[in-house]
Structure formats: structure tokens, C-alpha cells
Simulated scan of single mutants.
Amino acid sequence: MTLAGNAASAAASAPERHTAVRTTPTSGFGHKVGSLLRNGIVQAVLVAVGLVWLTPTVGLLVSSLRPGTEEDSSGWWTAFIHPSTLTFSNYSHLLDNGDITQAFWNTVLISVPATAAVVVIAALAGYAFAWLRFPGRDAVFLVVVGMLVVPVQIGLLPVAKLFGAVGIFGSIYGVILFHVAYGLPFAIFLLRNYFAEIPKEMLEAARMDGGTEWTIFTRLILPVGKPALASLTIFQFLWVWNDMLVSLIFADSQSQPLTVALQSQMRQFGANIDVLAPGAFLSLIVPLLVFFAFQRHFVEGVMAGSVK
């Protein structure tokens, strides 16, 4: 019995030894070299994609620093051969243009309030739809979701007529109100779904401790919802900052944003690249700064939605 038991034990342990022998090479030098090669290939591909993606931005930056006389005779990439030709005179002339500077501040005055109003109102409404009980809650939320499928072009003329009747057509206030109205459905839908994923036990514990709904919203919901709020802030700001259709309809010459001002500055065939290039890069750099300012919370929101 002892011999049989030993044999059985040896037979049982044989596959384990065999498995151990088979798995040993995977942690050896060859496996490490292969892993480094695979990682190197992936990183090289990502770097190549990043360079291709950044090429238009780099080209725009270089073009904005080149004299207008050189744009007709050579491409922007030739500036790397003769970097001494680069100058900031285009930006000086651009900032001396009163229409462009006024349009830039108009863009700020439109984008910041429109973004802040959408985020604040959508956060309050999202919390109400997610955790408060009131008559017709689901029906109202369905109406909000249904408004997502309404194209912005449908509301341009009726809203323009309404704004004309109340006296705000052609003003910054009209542009802001339009962006807020059409940005709220998506914002409410996004935040409501995010807030609804918060564990119910957290809210019940806060209520048992005597917390009011306002206290729960400001001290629990908002801190937990930072990733969603950051994502919404980035999306809304980019939509408003880069908009031209709404501003073409609702803004006059005194309230037009930068996108409309650059379009109006174009000469025949876009020959004034010395004005358009620095203006376009000025319009590009502000959204980039906003994105990098909220990048950490934005990445947290993406990762939170991908991990159970």
C-alpha cells in the first residue's frame, strides 16, 4: 500500500512538475525580449499616430509665424530649414485688429456663461431625475430624452423670431440662451445616468445623519460626480467655442464670436493667410488649455465607465 501510495503521489505530482518545467521559459530572457519588442512596436505605432494627428496643428502654428509673402512661394515645412524667417508680427497685427480682439472677448463672454449655466442646471436636474420623487418625473425625463433627436437647424428660425419679439436678437444674450437651451437635453441625460449609478446606501446614510437634499447634492453628489461634470464641461465648452452656425444667425457685427469674425476676414481664395492662420491658432489654443485643465477628471470618468 505504501508503494502504491507513493506511485500515486508521484503520478499526481508529475503533471505539476511538467507544468512547472513548461512555464519556466515564459519568465526567461527570451520572454522578456519578446515582451519588450511587442511593447516597443506598440509604442512606435502610437508615436507615429500621434505625429500624424499633430501635423495639421504644427502646420497651422508654423504658418501663423511665417510672413504672408512666403506662403505663396513655399510650404510651411520649409520654415524648419530657415527658422530665422519665423516672426510674431502676424500676431501683433492680429491683436491690433479691433474686430478680431472684440470677437475674441465675445467668444469668451458667450462660451463661459453658456458652459457654466448648462453644467449647473443639468447637475440639479440630473440629481432630481435620479433620486427625487415627484409627479410626472419619468414622463418629463422622456420628453428631455426625446429632445435629443431634434436637429438644431429646426429651431433656428422660430427661436430667431421669438428673440426678435423679446428684443434680444443679435445680442450676446440671445446666443447664450440658444446654446443653453440646446445643450441641456444631452447634459441632463448624461448627468442623470451618472448620478443614478451612485449607491443608494450612500444617500440613505446621509439622510439618516440629518443631511438635507441640498447638503447631499453639494457635499456628496458633486464630489462623486466630478468626472462626469468635467467631461460635460469639456464637451459643452468645445461645442460653444467652435460654433459658427448659431452665431451666424443670432449674432450681429458687435456680438459675433471669433469663428464668424475670421470667416468675415477672408478675402478671395483665402489669400490672407497671415490673418487667418494666427486667428485660427488663437481660436484653437483656448480649447486645448480647457481640455488639459480638466484632463485628469475626464480620464477618471472614462476609466470609471469602463471598469465594473
Results as ranks from 00 to 15, higher is better:
5 G>S: 13
7 A>M: 09
9 S>D: 09
10 A>G: 05
10 A>W: 12
11 A>Y: 09
12 A>M: 12
13 S>I: 06
14 A>D: 04
17 R>T: 04
17 R>M: 07
19 T>V: 12
19 T>N: 11
19 T>R: 15
24 T>L: 14
25 P>L: 07
27 S>I: 03
28 G>Q: 11
29 F>N: 06
33 V>F: 08
34 G>R: 03
37 L>D: 00
38 R>F: 10
38 R>M: 09
40 G>T: 12
41 I>V: 14
43 Q>H: 11
43 Q>C: 04
44 A>H: 03
48 A>K: 01
49 V>M: 11
53 W>Q: 13
54 L>G: 02
55 T>N: 05
63 S>K: 10
67 P>D: 11
72 D>E: 12
74 S>V: 15
75 G>T: 10
75 G>K: 05
80 F>Y: 06
86 L>P: 02
86 L>Q: 01
91 Y>T: 01
92 S>G: 14
93 H>F: 06
94 L>T: 04
95 L>F: 15
97 N>Q: 11
111 S>Y: 10
116 A>F: 13
116 A>W: 07
118 V>H: 03
119 V>L: 14
121 I>Y: 06
121 I>N: 10
123 A>S: 15
127 Y>S: 08
128 A>F: 07
131 W>C: 04
135 P>W: 12
138 D>L: 14
139 A>D: 09
141 F>G: 08
142 L>M: 15
145 V>N: 09
149 V>A: 15
149 V>D: 06
151 P>K: 08
152 V>M: 09
155 G>C: 11
159 V>S: 14
160 A>G: 11
161 K>G: 05
161 K>T: 12
162 L>G: 04
166 V>R: 10
166 V>N: 09
167 G>M: 01
168 I>C: 10
169 F>D: 08
169 F>N: 10
172 I>D: 03
173 Y>Q: 11
175 V>F: 06
176 I>N: 00
176 I>R: 00
177 L>D: 02
179 H>G: 12
182 Y>I: 10
182 Y>V: 13
186 F>E: 01
197 E>W: 01
198 I>E: 02
199 P>A: 06
200 K>A: 15
202 M>P: 00
203 L>A: 01
207 R>C: 08
208 M>E: 01
209 D>T: 07
209 D>E: 14
209 D>L: 08
209 D>K: 07
212 T>F: 02
214 W>A: 10
214 W>T: 07
214 W>G: 09
215 T>C: 00
215 T>Q: 05
221 I>K: 07
222 L>Q: 02
228 A>Q: 05
231 S>Y: 11
235 F>P: 02
241 W>C: 13
245 L>T: 14
250 F>V: 11
250 F>T: 12
250 F>N: 11
252 D>L: 05
253 S>N: 10
253 S>M: 04
254 Q>C: 00
254 Q>V: 02
255 S>C: 10
256 Q>Y: 00
258 L>D: 05
262 L>K: 06
264 S>R: 14
269 F>L: 13
270 G>F: 14
270 G>I: 11
271 A>H: 10
273 I>F: 03
273 I>G: 01
273 I>V: 09
274 D>N: 05
274 D>S: 05
277 A>Q: 08
282 L>D: 09
282 L>E: 06
282 L>N: 06
285 I>Y: 10
287 P>V: 01
288 L>I: 15
289 L>S: 15
291 F>S: 02
292 F>K: 03
292 F>I: 07
293 A>S: 12
297 H>M: 07
298 F>A: 12
300 E>R: 14
305 G>N: 08
306 S>E: 05
